[in-house]
Computed example of a mutant assay.
Amino acid sequence: MSAFAFFGALEIGLIYGLVALGVYLTFRVLDFPDLSVDGTFPMGVAVAATAITAGINPWLATGMAIIVSAAMGWVTAFLTVRCGILNLLASILTMIAAFSINIRIMGRPNMALLGQDTILTPFESWGEAMYVRPLVVGLLVLLSAWFVVRLLNSDFGLGMRATGVNARMVAAQGANTGFYTYFCLAISNGFVGFAGALFAQTNSFADVTSGVGTIVVGLAAVILGQTLIPGKKIWVAILAVVVGSIVYRLAVAFALSSGMFGLEASDLNLVTAVLVALALVLPKMKRARTRRSAMKAATTPSHANPSTGESR
């Protein structure tokens, strides 16, 4: 794999690290299967691209993308909390609606950002773009990860985590579980929209279909990262999902660029499915092997002489 491909995969992995943070908040913290990220990722792309081409400051355009995407997450929570729609179905409805909204925002299915200023433009004077862009994106991801760690370690974050474990217990303590759901869904999709805005600016194009498979990539990052870096502490879990996103992208780039097994770019979804399946199956196989070894050791008769402690 060439240096250009490596740093390109690193950059994309860092961007999708923001998606992984959002997916972690919904799936791991709140225990909410949120599929609306397939719609909010291209929404971040669409809002940022449309605003930048309209002459709006790239940082302000990125903020707009985060807010609009967070609002879509709020809609998913509203459909679940207030309307009583099953969480999985509510997120699917939001995802479907977002596709049409994104086309409305852009006015067309895709657009180019070539020649437009982005949030990366002021940093281009630092050196070669191939090295600078992953550095800048990495700093943004690091700040986002720090924010999530501080949030989950706060009293409010503790309530949000407790809601995901046992919502009835939290409600019995007088806390508003609905508010935790609104907030978590909003901030999760805000991170996904942030990733979409960065994706549009780093790749200099926007397309309404760019969100296809986003949830699978986010899950792959979360599962793979927590398999590679197990741990119960919040900062370890957050580090794991970001590392998982980077490892996933590097693994895909290596598999596709090396021609291994005859894979092509069109096989990206197949590679993703295989990696997720392996990340799910391998830990279970390891635990099963450990249990069998422990049971075998427990049922094996001892041949030691109890009076001397020596073997017969």
Rank of each mutant, 00 (worst) to 15 (best):
T121A: 11
A46S: 11
H303A: 13
F261M: 15
N87P: 10
G174Y: 01
L270W: 05
E11C: 15
L282R: 00
L228D: 11
V23W: 08
N203H: 13
W59P: 04
N110F: 15
A294E: 15
T202D: 02
A251S: 15
Q173G: 03
A220G: 13
I85G: 13
K286H: 10
W59D: 04
V241I: 15
P33L: 07
A277L: 11
R287Q: 10
L10Y: 02
N189Q: 12
V216I: 15
P58F: 03
F4Y: 03
V252Q: 12
S266H: 11
R161A: 10
L143C: 09
K286M: 08
M169C: 14
I229L: 03
S188C: 12
F27V: 04
P301I: 05
T163G: 11
R161H: 08
A171E: 13
P109L: 08
L263T: 02
A46P: 02
E264R: 14
S210I: 08
P42M: 01
V81D: 12
A298I: 03
G164D: 11
V29C: 00
T62H: 06
L152T: 07
N166P: 06
T299Y: 05
V242I: 14
L280I: 08
N166S: 15
I119G: 05
V252A: 11
L10S: 02
L270F: 05
S245P: 05
M1L: 04
G178S: 10
T181N: 03
A90H: 03
P134W: 10
Y16R: 06
I92Y: 02
I85R: 12
S100K: 15
W74C: 06
L280M: 10
L35Q: 04
A171T: 07
M43Y: 09
G309A: 05
V132T: 10
V81C: 12
P42T: 00
V236D: 00
I96G: 02
Y24D: 02
V149L: 14
I92F: 10
I85S: 14
W235K: 14
L60E: 12
D207K: 08
V241G: 02
M111E: 11
V274D: 06
F99T: 13
G218P: 03
V45Q: 00
F6I: 13
V208F: 11
D34A: 06
M160T: 09
S257L: 06
L152S: 04
P134Q: 07
F99S: 10
T308C: 01
V132P: 06
Y16P: 00
A221S: 11
A171V: 03
L270E: 06
G13H: 09
R312D: 15
